[in-house]
Computed example of a mutant assay.
Amino acid sequence: MVERRPALTLLSHLVLALGVLIVVFPVYIAFVGSTQTAEQISSSHPLSLVPGGHLIETYRLALVGGKTSGGATIAPVAPMLWVSLVCALTIAIGKIAISLLSAFAIVYFRFPLRGLVFWMIFVTLMLPVEVRIGPTYAVVSDLGMLNTYAGLTVPLIASATATFLFRQFFLTVPDELVEAARIDGAGPLRFFKDVLVPMSRTSIAALFVIQFIYGWNQYLWPLLVTTSEDMYPVVLGIKRAIFGEVYVEWNVVMATAILAMLPPAIVVILMQKWFVKGLVDSEK
């Protein structure tokens, strides 16, 4: 029986409320700033905590671009959001697909040096993109993949972490299940498609959320492989809005930041149940 301690419960709720306030307050400030004019934000007076009356105007300007009252040119954010969405989905789906197949091969196929192959994959955790960025950029450039979706996504698709997680899960699958599938005449691919993939759906959901956010927040790699504004993701769009003009339209920058936060937040909210279950499922 769990002992109830009202004081401890109140303290834990206060700590949680404080944590939520610390996280949410900067986002609220950005939202408030996006509803005001650049002149109001740049004035010497403290920023008002009450939303202004320029919400629709600012977000329309951020999405479709145009000229501001100060004469600055604003690049549209909508194409950047599309580039980020395509890249995030490609990276997330690609990582999961490749990791599922590689883990399946390592666990259920017998071939020479199988253990060495797994550890070679695992060692790549010590070689992130930032470490091998020079040779990776040279390969992408030589293959003519600059300013393309392939150049933005293919070097980031392989994932040793996801391979390791799926391998550990596949090792927990009872051998009796494998034998039953073999007796029923199921081949390797059918066993993979009809048994392993459905059993891994919670892990897939959890990894999809993590990898989607990872792909959405990419900054350094797109900064290197994109020179055309048509292929800028939204993170680079924020950087361009801040450093591209002498006079920064902070209301548009904050609106762009809010727009950039929405898709990952929507993915987390919609898949929260599956995400938590995939991380703490007792069946694993």
Rank of each mutant, 00 (worst) to 15 (best):
M1C: 11
E3V: 15
R4E: 11
V32T: 08
V32I: 07
G33M: 14
S44F: 14
H45A: 15
H45Q: 15
L49N: 04
V50H: 05
G53R: 14
G70L: 14
A75G: 10
V77D: 08
P79A: 08
P79W: 04
M80I: 02
M80G: 07
L81A: 00
V86D: 07
I91W: 03
I91K: 03
I93C: 15
L101C: 10
S102H: 02
F109T: 09
R110Y: 11
L125C: 06
P128C: 00
R132W: 10
G134A: 13
T136E: 09
A138G: 08
Y149H: 14
G151V: 10
G151E: 06
L156T: 04
F164G: 02
L165M: 08
F170H: 05
P174S: 03
A180K: 06
A181Y: 06
G185K: 04
F192P: 02
D194C: 11
V197K: 08
S200C: 08
S200Q: 05
L207S: 04
F212A: 01
Y214T: 07
L224Q: 11
V234N: 00
V235K: 08
V248K: 09
T256Y: 07
T256M: 13
L259D: 00
P263H: 00
A265L: 00
V268F: 12
M271A: 12
Q272C: 01
W274F: 12
F275S: 04
K277G: 13
